[in-house]
Amino acid sequence: MEHIVEIQDLSKDYETGFWKKKKVRALDGLSLRVEPGQIFGFLGGNGAGKTTTIKILMGLLFPTSGTARILGRDIGDTSMHREIGYCPENPYFYDYLTADELINYFGEIFGLDSARRKERSAELLTKVGLAEKDWNKQLRKYSKGMLQRVGLAQSLINDPKIVFLDEPMSGLDPVGRREIRELIAELRSSGTTVFMSTHILSDVEALCERVAILRRGKLAATGRLEDLLANSEQQAFEINVSGISAAALRPFAASSNAELFEKPTGISLQVNSETEIDAALKAVRGSGGKLLSVQPVGRSLEELFVEKTGTA
């Protein structure tokens, strides 16, 4: 099996209105492939169709047209669900159960015996960072962040080959976010493929090898994250200097179309290509400035995101 997820021409129309049915296209001819063993980032603004796609993959929604396969099996085949995991966006579970009971319940659905369930429940709840004192509290008393952790724990109960995480970081505080980030990285290193939707770009940069960006239900871009970022115009560099005034560098900046910023620590000069670095350094030295640093300024993911999703 080459691709762990294969999406082919997937479209989904929602009908709205009661009398006059209007069709709203939430997903429009999406085709996508995910290779095993990686963390795949599924990006897009609100309403771009990320959750719709994942719900179709999970069999919660039925596509208007198109097909999709997970682990080589059609998404209509429920038996494939033995080997996948899913944590919905803002997950919500039976609030009359405790976290431990919920994990046990799902464990039973997978046919785990009670000793194994007990073991697995403790293991998973520890893994997602839930304090042991909360394990036997009813979920109605859980905060959003705690529910998010329970959601992650239940998605891993069957030790899945691929896990689908819909906005796994929402509702978490910065510490929690870092913990979950580590957990996701750990999943990859243990061989689990992670398909995660998010709009938190720092998580994508920290975790994802490949991404797909959705825009209004259509695929705007897909590929390796590095490629997508490099692929854009030429690489820019930032040169930080001190000991001179901005005025001294202005002639150079004007001639090479570089940008000049004043910073508390000195001057920052941004050139548009590698070849211009030498000329810039010459100009700095010529006016008696002291070089602090030279660093590449990647076109940020944010810029890419804004460009591809057209949100700005």
């Binding site: 069999g59 919660l60 899913y86 799902f106 239940q154």
Partner: peptide, 14 residues
């Protein structure tokens, strides 16, 4: 309504 079905139907449950 409470979205508790989401997790269920991603399990091997028809």
């Amino acid at each position: 309504e409470k979205r508790t079905v989401y997790a269920i139907f991603a399990k091997p449950v028809t």
